[in-house]
């Protein structure tokens, strides 16, 4: 009888254990490479730490200092403005291209590849490209504007045009979002359009009343992911204005939050302060994502929802 009970127990434990065993490698990696560094950065944010010497506990000094540091406010503002303009534009361009691609016939495959190719370009190279394409004197963008009689600005040095220039360049990598939206578009049932056509709905009406609601989960995903990405924007702006492209020239208009965080952590070796900045960013992104989730309940339509 005892053996039978043990066998029964083994049978009941195995199904419960198996999933954990399957995800154990990932859990281990997550614990070591993500959870532990995140928790440790929380501790470091309460210390003065220069990488070489032992962390010195300073309580909440780093957090207090952040509120007194005008550059933190400037970097947050720059990042906020960039996000508010870049994300909607990025999503709109992605959607427009996905809609066009959805209608493309034989060339669709080629265009899908073409849209994705820029995503393969290293961001550092894009940063250098920014300086070339947006050069106020001989840049391609101003050359293009010149065809229409428009005297383009100094995109890379005029503080008012630095962020617009970077936003334009960020559209270079819409390819992945285009593919996500295209996949969603392909999943919209054709009969919905057929019914709308029979009812005499215009193309614009079909797009706004059928297409957009039906792909709203994908749109929401693209918005959330790109919002987080925009708050973490770094490489292109750093390369163009603070790194290899310009070792000494910089522009405060391009001082995004993560760039300032990087400077504090890896150029000035204020790891404690940089950690505190990272936690503030986490908090900001978490709040914004939460707001997006709340708003999404009204705007995002999931199949199967009542």
């Amino acid at each position: 009888m005892g053996a039978a009970v043990r066998a029964a127990r083994r049978r009941s434990v195995r199904p419960r254990l198996a999933p954990w065993l399957f995800i154990a490698p990932w859990l281990l990696g997550f614990a070591v490479f993500t959870a532990w560094p995140v928790l440790y950065s929380g501790y470091l944010s309460l210390t003065d730490y220069d990488v070489v010497n032992d962390p010195n506990f300073v309580g909440f000094d780093n957090y207090v200092r952040m509120f007194e540091d005008p550059k933190v406010g400037l970097a947050l503002w720059n990042t906020f403005v960039y996000t508010v303009v870049q994300v909607p534009l990025y999503v709109l361009v992605s959607l427009a291209l996905a809609l066009l691609l959805n209608r493309a016939g034989r060339g669709a495959g080629w265009f899908r590849t073409a849209f994705l190719l820029p995503k393969m370009t290293p961001p550092v190279a894009v940063g250098v490209l920014v300086l070339l394409l947006l050069n106020g004197q001989q840049g391609a963008l101003n050359e293009f504007l010149g065809w229409f009689g428009i005297d383009g600005p100094n995109w890379t040095t005029d503080s008012a045009w630095v962020k617009p220039g970077l936003i334009l360049m960020s559209l270079w990598t819409v390819g992945s979002s285009v593919l996500i939206l295209l996949a969603a578009l392909r999943a919209v049932p054709e009969e919905l359009y057929d019914a709308a056509v029979i009812d005499g709905a215009s193309g614009w009406y079909r797009t706004t009343r059928i297409t957009v609601p039906m792909i709203s989960p994908a749109l929401f995903f693209v918005v959330v992911v790109n919002t987080i990405g925009a708050f973490q924007t770094f490489t292109e702006a750093y390369t163009a204005y603070f790194g290899a492209g310009n070792s000494t020239y910089g522009n405060d208009a391009a001082l995004f939050y993560v760039i300032y965080l990087f400077q504090q952590g890896f150029e000035f070796f204020h790891m404690g302060y940089a950690s505190a900045m990272a936690w503030l960013l986490f908090l900001v992104v978490a709040v914004i994502t939460a707001v997006q989730l709340v708003v999404s309940r009204r705007l995002v339509h999931y199949e199967g929802d009542r």
């Binding site: 300086l131 070339l132 106020g136 004197q137 001989q138 890379t156 040095t157």
Partner: peptide, 11 residues
């Protein structure tokens, strides 16, 4: 202005 000089310098 510096913008004009830098643009020409960079080009």
């Amino acid at each position: 202005g510096f913008g004009a000089v830098k643009a020409l310098r960079d080009s």
